[in-house]
Nucleic acid binder design. Sequence first.
DNA 1: CTGAAAGCGCTTACAG
DNA 2: CTGAAAGCGCTTACAG
Lengths: 352, 352
Amino acid sequence: MVGMRDVAKEAGVSVSTVSLVVNNTGYVSDDMRSKVEAAMRELHYIPNELARNLYRNRTNTIGVIVPTIIHPFFAAFTAHLQREFAGRGLKTLLCSTADAATGESEYVNMLQRHMMDGIIMAAHTEHQPDYWSSIHRPIVAFDRNLGHGVPAVRSDHEAGGRMIARQLIDSGAKHVVLVGGPRSQFKQGTTFPTVRYHLTVEQMLADAGIACDYVEAGSVTDVVAHEATAAAIFERYPDVDAIVGSDVVAAVALQEAERRGIAVPNELQIIAYDGTLAAELAGKRLTVVRQDFSAIAAALAEQMDRQIAASDEAADGKTAQSADAAGSADTADANEAEAVIPVAFVAGETTR
Amino acid sequence: MVGMRDVAKEAGVSVSTVSLVVNNTGYVSDDMRSKVEAAMRELHYIPNELARNLYRNRTNTIGVIVPTIIHPFFAAFTAHLQREFAGRGLKTLLCSTADAATGESEYVNMLQRHMMDGIIMAAHTEHQPDYWSSIHRPIVAFDRNLGHGVPAVRSDHEAGGRMIARQLIDSGAKHVVLVGGPRSQFKQGTTFPTVRYHLTVEQMLADAGIACDYVEAGSVTDVVAHEATAAAIFERYPDVDAIVGSDVVAAVALQEAERRGIAVPNELQIIAYDGTLAAELAGKRLTVVRQDFSAIAAALAEQMDRQIAASDEAADGKTAQSADAAGSADTADANEAEAVIPVAFVAGETTR
DNA sequence: CTGAAAGCGCTTACAG
DNA sequence: CTGAAAGCGCTTACAG
């Protein structure tokens, strides 16, 4: 491997000078510069980033923790984040909890070993908020509350819920079925903000005197389970005339409805939450509440930048080791406001 | 940041000893070991991986270059690769050409700067094979020929083509439309092996005297274009009674068929190539030729391991800089066999 | 079994 | 404007 030393020797200058040329830093005479550049070209010199990483204690890599990118939601989410990060000179390390033996802990560990500069946490976690706030490294949460010192970004699910309820009420729905995650998550209100749209819908439908049942869907990683769920809905609630769920759930429900000869949207309306590619590939173009992936990604990247800057500051400012980490958390607190991103209702072929 | 030096001081031993304990290498007396472990715990010591990376000249990270993971095919592909890599202690860096300003070159550059140990190339490239074989770093190609020294893995598209043709012939199809990538790619045979299934289908249908037209779909990153393509097919070939394309194309075509009141599969059969989640979310469960993502991922990881080992060997064996890179390529040549993974025909609701 | 030393390839004060 | 030196945090021969 050809290194700076080789280039320096070839050009007859010192390594410092080569470094200055490579980084285009400081003042270098044109003469020196061209000698160095010639040597670099001659030897096909390519700087080794690992050495820089060590010196700067940075990798310019952000880990994105999601359950699995096979799910269209997380595929879109991750893709938009990568784009946003790329624009900021950051690389995206794919951290899928479904594909890691040890789940998110493994990735947190990597974060602490400085293999990444920060992580975006968008997967389910069993850890309590105090675990997360004790990491003292840049973390930003998506759609969940990870406690003090961990900023969060989420969609405006209350608004999404209102849009759905309004559509159902206005179109004269009589019996609505909501499909979502485990109901046990609802009480905490802490780590699963997605439930907010369900609660909003339930409240508004109740006020309007419309029947509403809740059905738990399988894990986000298991689509096959959704098919069973869809079939179960029609068996259990023969008079259901509206189903609300994620794109994937909605697509599967639509397929099952067609199979049973139930006319959509006349006999059954379907509203999908998310607005991913899945909503476009379904049997009909689904009516969706669309989350704004670009805005979400931008907000997450923005918060991440702040967290990283704060953590740098803390590292610079203090020398005592324990004060370092604590300082990081403190600085983060200042920016802890939760960013809430608007959603949009987009009518398709599955509502009337 | 607390480092080994701090731990050594706290435990009253040398850094070397701390290192031996941390890595569980060599012989350390139980006495020393426990003193060091106590100090590590006391100071909350976490090793900094960047220093190791530099010493070993390794990141244990593989870049996966795909057009975009929003597309279900590359989502599944990438997810399976990540799982496979994780099992081998490797991390997955997401390299999407749709989200990088400079396309794949940027990632190749990162590879050369040792920010990754290797790359899996699964996106379209304008570069000629000689570009790729001049990199002299671990690269494995998926479904394309990147020239001498770059091993490749692909599905058995000829078999896939035969399965499709057989189904169409046996079911009495009269006018088939194939949807695929730009026809201009067909002649080279070099960088786009996917076309093999199209050529096989065309040949077999021609032999059977069945009409077959080819329609170019939009870019893999642009699903909206597919919708226009689907509509165009029905306009242009009113008597079409079978459509063959990727899952995404097939799903969109099915949606358009239902919209036009064309009965599937009685009036129109649809066969999807890939077998991703998209095939399950469509209006009906699609009949698919399923690619074996697990086997593909395993084969790619296997080849990657070999490439990395070969590149290590080359670096160890030689000292002259230019011989190093050349040696790497030579060693790679020994394993250059292209791995071909079987596909499966899975009947769904869209064929008869 | 343990420690002092050199080094991974680069960057950055600091003298000249 | 340029070079010699120290250092990023760790690992690995090499003496003891």
